[in-house]
Simulated assay, not measured.
Amino acid sequence: MLDDIDRRILRHFQADPSLTAAELAERCRISQGVCWRRVEKMQAAGIIQGQEAVIDWAALGYAVEVSLRVTLDKTQSRAFDEFTAVARQVPEVIELQTFLGRVDVRLSVIARDMSHYQQLYRDRILTLPHISDIEALMHIARVKSEEVLPV
């Protein structure tokens, strides 16, 4: 279970993962050794799973984002596994989620423009295995995108 010091470490670490151990310890008002041991303990427990760079794909020229809701042909026993294995290989698929319900899979797809998206859709998406139905939702605006947990 996390105590107040662990939560403080996580709050500061989430706010700025580039902090050095000394800076993190100073902000948490604990010694560097204590801070480092607690971070290592949380890493070993799987609470802290790593750090990642967040890249603004729009700044790299990707202006279109589409959410695709996919229903699979569930008469095929390996439909989920085969679909997700092939979908993972499409570089423009930036997120893949599976669901229980009417929609089986949601793909987030990025493209440089509508022409690029149309090409991706025809050549890569529609050729994915076991698609029974597909619905496209054009992304308009990101209202909230937050990875920080309330600890």
Rank of each mutant, 00 (worst) to 15 (best):
I47L: 11
I47C: 04
I47W: 09
I47A: 06
I48D: 04
I48T: 03
I48Q: 03
Q49M: 11
Q49R: 13
Q49Y: 05
G50A: 07
G50N: 04
G50W: 06
Q51T: 15
Q51G: 12
Q51N: 11
Q51L: 08
Q51H: 09
E52W: 05
A53R: 13
A53W: 07
A53F: 10
A53V: 08
A53Y: 10
A53S: 12
V54E: 11
I55V: 12
I55N: 03
D56V: 01
D56C: 02
D56A: 05
W57F: 13
W57H: 10
W57K: 07
W57L: 15
W57Q: 11
W57G: 01
W57Y: 11
A58S: 15
A58R: 15
A58D: 10
A58F: 09
A59K: 10
A59N: 15
A59D: 14
A59G: 15
L60R: 13
L60M: 14
L60P: 03
L60G: 13
G61S: 05
G61N: 02
G61F: 06
G61D: 06
G61P: 03
G61I: 10
Y62R: 07
Y62L: 11
Y62G: 06
A63E: 13
A63K: 15
A63Y: 07
A63P: 02
V64H: 06
V64T: 10
V64P: 01
V64Q: 11
V64R: 13
V64C: 06
E65W: 02
E65Y: 06
E65S: 15
E65T: 15
E65N: 09
E65F: 04
V66P: 02
V66E: 04
V66N: 02
V66D: 03
V66H: 05
V66I: 15
S67W: 11
S67R: 08
S67L: 13
S67H: 14
L68C: 04
L68N: 01
L68S: 00
L68R: 00
R69N: 11
V70C: 00
V70R: 00
V70E: 01
T71C: 06
T71W: 06
T71A: 12
T71E: 10
T71N: 09
T71M: 09
T71S: 14
L72H: 02
L72D: 02
L72Q: 01
L72P: 01
D73K: 03
D73I: 04
D73C: 02
K74C: 09
K74G: 10
K74V: 04
K74S: 05
K74W: 05
K74P: 02
T75V: 06
Q76R: 11
Q76A: 11
Q76E: 12
S77E: 13
S77P: 09
S77L: 11
S77A: 12
S77V: 14
S77F: 14
S77M: 07
R78E: 13
A79K: 01
A79G: 01
A79V: 04
A79I: 02
F80N: 00
F80Q: 01
F80E: 01
D81K: 09
D81N: 08
